[in-house]
Simulated scan of single mutants.
Amino acid sequence: MNTSDATFGGTFPFAPHYTHAPGFRMHYVDEGPRDGGVVLCLHGEPTWGYLFRHLIPVLSQTHRVIVPDHMGFGRSETPQDRSYWLQDHIDNLERFVLALDLNEITLVMHDFGGPVGMGLAARHPGRIRRVISANAPTPFGQADLLDRVLANASTSPWFQWIMQADAKGSLEAVLGQLGFNILSTLKLNGFENNAIINDGWISAYSAPFADPADCVGAIGWAKGFATGAHSFETPDAAANQAIRTKPALAIWGDADRTLGAEHFLPLFAAIFPAAQTIRLPGVGHYCFEDAPNTVASLISDFIRQS
């Protein structure tokens, strides 16, 4: 767990906030006017709120931008006696949102932040204002979800590695050293913008994984896929109908090697058939790193126009 207040060369100057509402010490960024509309940014594996460092200053001029670190990631605590399945992260986010009494939420989701955010939407559709997927799956009770997940896994280097490493019994050992192999993990997932790599950048992403005990969250997400332990939230009929009326936007880096557009954009279109989908050539899985200004502009414009 990274408990420092390091700004990583001034690239993450945001004041830390903490809550114990989810049953552990959860870190979050909270920037912008308190009476502004809420933008809730949800990261995935193996990142943390640092992923949104370029987006926060843009949106916080007019909106309240809240960026929590999931349990076991970033500056949040990594309890050793908790499970780290999808449903646990949904539970944690729900408690966080209720504790802060967040409403009129614009969801900005990346990677497994998609299933977590859509889980929140399934439970509390009335609190959601807009939905933005940025290389993030948007499962919402679709009948073909499992088929799409398995089809993607058959071609994704990351998911292929997870299955092979779990079968060989090496998954925990490798991911338990994320502090040392963070760059190779990001590259395997589809990080393309080599120009931004420097010591500070590597430190920002490796610092939360200083020793194996800090890596339990990252291990849990991968292990949950390998063992089928993750449980996707299924909305009831009312929630399903309510979310379909929300303004929505999909932004997808086409060079994503982890989550193929052909497998996951149809999930988004099934819920939001009239929504705009913007595909970014040459941009990888970590679109917020590969094209930060483009993605921030697209999100800002969409919020303003909707």
Rank of each mutant, 00 (worst) to 15 (best):
residue 55 L to A: 08
residue 147 D to T: 12
residue 19 T to V: 00
residue 194 N to Q: 15
residue 181 N to I: 08
residue 179 G to I: 06
residue 151 A to H: 01
residue 116 V to E: 00
residue 100 L to Y: 02
residue 126 G to L: 00
residue 126 G to T: 02
residue 171 L to I: 01
residue 195 A to N: 13
residue 264 F to R: 14
residue 22 P to S: 01
residue 302 F to H: 04
residue 133 S to L: 10
residue 24 F to H: 09
residue 236 D to V: 03
residue 105 I to L: 02
residue 106 T to Y: 02
residue 105 I to G: 00
residue 115 P to F: 03
residue 91 D to I: 13
residue 252 W to Y: 10
residue 157 P to S: 07
residue 147 D to A: 14
residue 174 V to T: 11
residue 22 P to T: 00
residue 208 P to L: 00
residue 156 S to R: 10
residue 212 P to C: 01
residue 140 F to K: 02
residue 131 V to F: 09
residue 281 P to N: 11
residue 87 Q to C: 01
residue 265 L to H: 12
residue 148 R to A: 15
residue 232 F to D: 12
residue 159 F to M: 13
residue 174 V to K: 09
residue 29 V to T: 12
residue 162 I to N: 10
residue 92 N to L: 13
residue 301 D to N: 15
residue 82 R to Y: 11
residue 125 P to M: 05
residue 26 M to E: 10
residue 162 I to V: 12
residue 82 R to G: 00
residue 90 I to E: 01
residue 294 T to H: 12
residue 283 V to D: 11
residue 146 L to D: 09
residue 52 F to N: 07
residue 101 D to M: 13
residue 142 Q to V: 08
residue 305 Q to A: 14
residue 265 L to V: 14
residue 65 V to R: 05
residue 286 Y to P: 06
residue 280 L to Q: 03
residue 171 L to R: 03
residue 175 L to Q: 12
residue 14 F to M: 05
residue 293 N to W: 13
residue 164 Q to I: 12
residue 200 G to Y: 03
residue 172 E to F: 15
residue 148 R to C: 15
residue 228 G to S: 05
residue 9 G to W: 01
residue 258 T to K: 05
residue 195 A to S: 12
residue 173 A to D: 15
residue 57 P to T: 00
residue 129 R to P: 01
residue 211 D to Y: 07
residue 171 L to Y: 05
residue 295 V to G: 10
residue 163 M to P: 07
residue 148 R to F: 14
residue 184 S to R: 11
residue 232 F to L: 13
residue 231 S to R: 15
residue 60 S to H: 11
residue 80 Q to C: 08
residue 153 A to K: 02
residue 49 G to V: 01
residue 7 T to D: 07
residue 217 G to C: 07
residue 137 P to M: 03
residue 80 Q to F: 09
residue 269 A to H: 07
residue 70 H to A: 05
residue 295 V to F: 12
residue 125 P to D: 05
residue 198 N to R: 02
residue 42 L to S: 03
residue 118 M to G: 04
residue 81 D to Y: 04
residue 246 K to I: 10
residue 228 G to E: 03
